[in-house]
Every structure is written in C-alpha cells, then in structure tokens.
C-alpha cells in the first residue's frame, strides 16, 4: 500500500513497495499521459513534477514517497491545455507521434519555472528527454515562445516554387 497525492488528489494504491511511481500512476491511479519509455531514467517519457521538481517517475519506487509529496502529471499541468508551454507547443506544432511529448512538456514547464527566460544553453542542459521523431528544433522554438509569452519567431523553413 502507498498513499500518493497526484494532481491534488489523494490515492491509496495497492502496490508492492518497489513499484515505480510511473506504474502506480498508470495502472493504479489510472492516468496514462505519463509514458513508459525505458524504465531506467534515460528517456524522460515518464517525467512528472515531484514537489515542484522535475522527476523521472520510472526510477522512483513508491516506498520512497510520503503521502504529503505532491506529484503533478501532464493531466494536472493545466485543466484544459492552457499552460503556456502547452499553448506554445500547439502554436509551433511540435508533436509528431507525440509519445514523448508529455515528458517534454513537463520538462519544459519545470525549466521555465526556474528560468523564465532560458538561453539556448539552458535549454540544451535542461531538455534531455529523448524524442525519436526528432522534434527538437520545434521544442527549442516552443520553449522560447513560451518564455516570451507567445511572441518569439519560430520559422526557419522556406518553400521554393519551381
């Protein structure tokens, strides 16, 4: 048994103590926006906020958590997709397959909380989640856009009519 506070709600979850937070969130709490990618804290698809800090939930056994620890998942980042990071992600059309994007968005939101105007180097350092579709250029652009309140220019592409 473990007591988890997820997105402001308390849950009693019946799991073995070594169960990773990721699987408790997905299978017991029933929120599937947080994704399994590697199970070894390498890819960041499972990123959540733990007491306001970015955390890779696949490598956190529930036994290490207290009932007072505040866990926020992608479902709890905003009620309706209106977090500035989510809005910037939509404006730049970041996702391709989308599977890693919950984690990317959680990582970006955590970065902007600490550094509201991150430099490219800050983004390089903070955004270490894997995206196999390769949306990195748009992730960078969307982080800058979210930081600037939605005004940063993002396009680098051109079309040539033959």
């Amino acid at each position: 048994m473990a007591k988890l506070n997820v997105n402001g709600k308390a849950f009693d979850v019946k799991v073995d103590p070594d169960t990773p937070l990721l699987w408790a969130i997905r299978e017991q709490v029933g929120l599937t926006g947080t994704k399994y990618g590697c199970g070894v804290a390498q890819c960041g698809a499972c990123s959540v906020h733990l007491n306001g800090e970015l955390a890779r939930s696949c490598a956190i056994p529930v036994s290490t958590l207290k009932p007072t620890d505040k866990i926020v998942t992608i479902e709890g980042l905003s009620r309706d997709g209106s977090h500035p990071v989510q809005k910037a992600w939509a404006a730049v059309d970041v996702p391709q397959c989308g599977y890693c994007q919950s984690g990317q968005i959680m990582a970006a939101a955590a970065l902007l909380k600490k550094k509201p105007k991150p430099s490219d180097t800050d983004i390089d350092t903070a955004m270490t989640n894997i995206c196999r579709c390769g949306t990195y250029q748009r992730i960078r652009a969307a982080v800058h856009m979210a930081a600037s309140g939605g005004t940063a220019a993002v396009t680098t592409n051109s079309q040539k009519k033959a």
Partner: peptide, 19 residues
C-alpha cells in the same frame, strides 16, 4: 536500452533549414 543504444538528444541537434 537507451543507456547503451544512444539516441540523439536536443543538445546535439543542429540548426536545420529546410527547402
């Protein structure tokens, strides 16, 4: 796993211009 099969991350991604 990704610790021994490494995937490109944002930091290594170059600036891309597409035509």
């Amino acid at each position: 796993n990704f610790d021994n099969y490494e995937i490109m991350r944002l930091e290594a991604f170059p600036k891309i211009e597409t035509v």
